[in-house]
C-alpha cells in the first residue's frame, strides 16, 4: 500500500520531498550508481585486451623493399599490401580521369609519399585477397591488382576500375616514423 520501496526514485509528496523520501531517494540513487559501477567491468572485459591492443600497431622496415616490389604484412589479422611504386606506376595513377572511377578518389589522397602505396589487401566486394603482389601474379587490366574470386580489377593506386567491387582498396591509418620505417595503425 505504501509506496515505500527503497528503490523508488519518485517520492516527494505535495510540496517537495519529506525527510523519509529523501532517505529513500538517496539510497536509491546510490544503489543505481553502484549497479552501474558494477556493470562496467563486465562490459569492459569484452573490449580488446592489452595483448590485442599491443598488436594494434605494427612497424614495418621499408629498407629491403626495392622499386617495383611489394610486400604483404599482417596487421590486426588482415593482410596489408605495401608497394614501392615505379615512376611509371605513379604517373599512370596520377593521370587517371576521376570521372572514369566507380569510386572517385585522387591518387594524392591515397598516399602520403607517392612512392609508397599502403593498403589493406582485402577486396571490397566479398573479402578475398587480390592477386598482384608477386611479379608473376596476374595484375588485371590496369596494372595493379586482380581479384580472382569475381574479377575485380584495381589500378596502380589500388582503386577499383572494373568488376563488382564497390570501393577502392582501403588505406589504413599510417605514419612514417622516418624514411625507412612506417607505423601502421
Amino acid at each position: 500500500m505504501s509506496d515505500s520501496a527503497p528503490m523508488a526514485a519518485d517520492g516527494g509528496e505535495d510540496g517537495g520531498a519529506t525527510r523519509r523520501d529523501f532517505l529513500y531517494i538517496a539510497t536509491g540513487v546510490m544503489g543505481a550508481a553502484g549497479v552501474a559501477a558494477v556493470a562496467w567491468p563486465f562490459v569492459d572485459s569484452m573490449n580488446p585486451s592489452a595483448e590485442v591492443l599491443a598488436l594494434a600497431e605494427i612497424e614495418v622496415d621499408l629498407s629491403p623493399i626495392e622499386e617495383g616490389q611489394s610486400i604483404t604484412v599482417t596487421w590486426r589479422g588482415k593482410p596489408v599490401f605495401i608497394r614501392r611504386r615505379t615512376a611509371d606506376e605513379i604517373d599512370t595513377a596520377q593521370a587517371v580521369d576521376l570521372g572514369l572511377l566507380p569510386d572517385p578518389q585522387a591518387d594524392a589522397d591515397r598516399v602520403q609519399k607517392p612512392e609508397w602505396l599502403v593498403m589493406v589487401g582485402i577486396c571490397t566486394h566479398l573479402g578475398c585477397v587480390p592477386l598482384g603482389q608477386k611479379s608473376s601474379d596476374p595484375k588485371g587490366e590496369f596494372g595493379g591488382w586482380f581479384c580472382p574470386c569475381h574479377g575485380s580489377h584495381y589500378d596502380t593506386s589500388g582503386r577499383i576500375r572494373k568488376g563488382p567491387a564497390p570501393k577502392n582498396l582501403e588505406v589504413p591509418a599510417y605514419t612514417f616514423i622516418d624514411d625507412q620505417t612506417v607505423r601502421i595503425g
Partner: peptide, 17 residues
C-alpha cells in the same frame, strides 16, 4: 567506503520501514 556509506543508508531505511 561506498559500501559502508550505502549500508548505513540501508540500515536507516530498514529502521524507517
Amino acid at each position: 567506503l561506498f559500501l559502508i556509506v550505502f549500508s548505513a543508508l540501508l540500515y536507516a531505511v530498514k529502521r524507517k520501514v
